[in-house]
Write a protein that binds this DNA or RNA. Structure first.
Lengths: 201, 201
DNA sequence: ACACAATGAGACGAGAATGTCTCAAGCGGG
DNA sequence: CCCGCTTGAGACATTCTCGTCTCATTGTGT
């Protein structure tokens, strides 16, 4: 039983369903199971065969988001080089998961008592450690706590994802705007060379 | 008919109900009308007598949020003095409405087609104009668009409100952390005197 | 004391979403 | 070719929330 071999028999693969669900729920967090099924191109019955209920689906999305986040954290090599560059790498690596993150970030408000997945605590710790490293370095200011900087990063990712999805900012500017605002803020700093508009490849 | 005279007869005042609803819906955006009523200390029947339906309640909350936002914008005197100080005044004035704003900010994602209240457009314009003024001034960097800075302010307000409500950051640091991160970013700037931790009275 | 307005409690049906079930059809492998 | 697995479509009961209704109670002003 249970699709042990990921062969060709599985016409609908969990991953494709999850991606579709993430894309839909990001835009409309109250979407029906029927809408989720239609968005994935499968029937509601099949959706239920793979995810026994809405909460199971959301938990699976949470696991996906955590996995993508940790993959981004690994790829960003947070403990190498200047902390500011690590932050830029992190934002770039996490961009593709930002919409899903935005959904989960607001959805977590609903879990209230149930206690959230411990994966988030691990991710929080790794990001906070990066900011702490930057503070020890002397790169980052010490009057903003690592916890708040982590929280602010989440907020900016969510804002950026929404702003992009509604066309208020260009998708190509996503990484640059988030990273530069988080690092440098809105103020102009004459002595820093933060004036090249895009070009971050 | 219909309580034309806002006298002493109104035992339950709309404002108290709206504040309770805002506080509850900020934490649990899918709260039931029954939960909203209990949170306000009234019965569901009475709640329905004042707000004919859930959408009416949300619209009233939206109107309240817009009103508080515009009051904060007025009180902050955005066009006086340096733009950076105007931003600090704005964050301070808007702090009391931040939780409500956070709820409405995410709720607006659901309105999809219906077109959002024009009040938000006015508020967006006023805030964006502040950032534009700072850019013309030379105070703010020009590689971050006013639209994105406005969006980022919303995101940071929401993050801050949630972080405070969950105890991840201290409520007394709310204004300082949001304003300073938005203005100065995470990087340390040796030549600027941004190192006094609190003290913003 | 009386009348009236507002509230609280609860019943009731409508509607939507969910979870489960059955049955027919498609499709690949033995 | 036939078998078995998976899917799609739909029916069905259940649950939840909503909106409306009624009725008893409270409290206030005259």
């Amino acid at each position: 039983m249970s699709q042990a071999g990921y062969g060709c028999l599985m016409a609908v693969d969990r991953h494709h369903v999850l991606r579709s669900a993430a894309a839909l729920l990001t835009r409309k967090s109250t979407a029906t199971m029927d809408e989720v099924a239609k968005a994935a191109g499968i029937s509601r019955a099949t959706l239920h065969r793979h995810f026994a209920g809405r909460d199971v689906l959301v938990r699976a999305l949470e696991a996906l988001g955590i996995a993508e986040c940790e993959a981004a954290l690994d790829a960003a090599r947070l403990d190498e080089g200047p902390a500011r560059d690590a932050v830029r790498r992190l934002v770039r690596e996490i961009e593709s998961a930002a919409a899903l993150l935005a959904f989960l970030y607001t959805e977590n408000q609903l879990f209230e008592g149930e206690g959230q997945n411990e994966g988030w605590a691990r991710i929080d710790d790794r990001i906070a450690a990066l900011f702490r490293r930057g503070q020890s370095n002397g790169e980052f200011r010490i009057d903003l706590t690592p916890a708040w900087l982590t929280e602010a990063l989440y907020g900016l990712l969510a804002s950026g994802a929404w702003a992009v999805s509604e066309g208020r900012v260009a998708a190509k500017d996503f990484t640059y705007m988030i990273a530069e605002l988080l690092l440098g803020g809105a103020l102009r700093h004459p002595e820093r060379n933060s004036e090249q508009p895009r070009e971050e490849s």
